[in-house]
Design a protein around this nucleic acid. Structure first.
Lengths: 109, 109
DNA sequence: AATATCAATCGTAATATTGCGATATATATG
DNA sequence: CATATATATCGCAATATTACGATTGATATT
């Protein structure tokens, strides 16, 4: 065990869970906020800004990139990271949809 | 290590990450969808509906309850679970705010 | 070519998560 | 009170996550 039973859930449920997992860490939230704020960031900026080791930041960036939420472009020695607009909008709207499923408390327990 | 460095992030970043973590599992997404769909659910219904053991569903319900996303009311032998409206709305608007930080691709990399 | 700079990857330790069987607890019902 | 029903909790095994030092790789700079 210790392994999520993906096969019993829908594609959508699994995809949403994966994206949310990518967001579900304060460092990654902070990284995204920094990237948005600065329009683009390189790894070193984030290392200075947050108080985490370079290896740790790099690993978080990789997770965000794997999820598709950010993209990285090589720019000389450094790599410029910014938001991936499509994935961002898609996730945003999927979450909107999910949260709007719930309408006001009817006659709950 | 293996421990998140909460102290270097803001209260908001940590709270949002905790709530997202509670959502970031297909079983918990499915549970919430079921609860919303049926207006309220008891643990047994969810065990039948999803294909997970009773102990597993109970544990997921506990996590959702700890996060404050659902509430449970004892109803005879069973416990009736439903959405906690305040937490739901709060998270929804916090996510709205977070996602709206990003405005269109300016002159990115 | 040698060196500096920046980021990715490897390896490792500590901790967390996932899932379930077994058991405990708590409330109905006969 | 004994039994059935429903849920929670315990304990465990398998796996995943988090963090970082050390190293590697790749591009500039001198």
């Amino acid at each position: 065990m210790g392994l999520t039973k993906t096969e019993i859930f829908t594609e959508e449920q699994n995809r949403l869970a994966i994206m949310l997992k990518a967001l579900a860490h304060p460092a990654r939230i902070a990284i995204l906020q920094q990237i948005i704020n600065a329009n683009a960031c390189i790894c070193g900026d984030l290392v200075d800004e947050l108080g985490l080791a370079q290896a740790t930041i790099s690993q978080h960036l990789k997770e965000l990139k794997t999820a598709g939420l950010i993209q990285g472009t090589i720019e000389g020695v450094s790599v410029c990271y910014c938001i991936e607009p499509r994935a961002w909008k898609l996730l945003s709207s999927q979450l909107d949809e999910f949260f709007s499923l719930y309408k006001e408390p009817a006659n709950c327990c």
